[in-house]
């Protein structure tokens, strides 16, 4: 299983991903980790259309992803993994499927969420998840587009606490 980039972005497949990250990561395949999309054919089509023509797109929730791994469905391609939120990331890590580097690229606003970098916001639940993953030894950084310098997790958490 060749995951060239694992990105958390609540907008899933969109401008920044399509124009920058697919190329930067040299990916030829996108997997969106989402049970909602897995079950919704209409929505899946929307995101399939959003991806560049040569890139294969699959949408699977974590349980199906685990099943796919067993069945060899993740063996092909250089994969850009996209997750909508940190809850999904935790689920992915807990399943044992992936414990590599994670890029946090976009998490939108809402009540009790604080801006920590560009268009990325966090709340208490998010910070708990991030701390837990950090303890597991995972490398997590924040970066919206390749032109931005990646921001380290501890720096971001400090910023969150200070707000």
């Amino acid at each position: 299983m060749d995951i060239t980039l694992c990105r958390v972005d609540s907008r899933l497949i969109h401008g920044q991903v399509v124009t920058k990250w697919v190329n930067q990561a040299n990916a030829n395949r996108i997997i969106v980790v989402s049970e909602e999309l897995e079950q919704d054919e209409f929505m899946r089509s929307v995101y399939l259309m959003a991806a560049p023509p040569a890139v294969k797109v699959d949408c699977w929730g974590v349980p199906s992803l685990v099943a796919q791994k067993k069945a060899g469905g993740l063996d092909d391609g250089r994969i850009l993994l996209i997750l909508p939120d940190l809850k999904t990331l935790k689920s992915l890590v807990d399943s044992g499927l992936y414990t590599g580097e994670v890029q946090i690229g976009g998490l939108g606003g809402g009540p009790s969420r604080k801006v920590v970098f560009q268009n990325i916001t966090l709340d208490d639940a998010d910070v708990d998840i991030l701390r837990g993953l950090e303890e597991k030894g995972m490398k997590i950084y924040f970066q919206t587009i390749p032109e931005d310098s990646p921001q380290a997790l501890d720096k971001i958490i400090d910023k969150y606490e200070k707000e």
């Binding site: 907008r11 899933l12 497949i13 401008g15 399509v18 209409f42 995101y47 259309m49 959003a50």
Partner: peptide, 16 residues
Amino acid sequence: DIPGGTTSNVALRLSR
């Protein structure tokens, strides 16, 4: 503006 961007994705989502 951009095909595949959030603007287009939302337009398509709402076309349901």
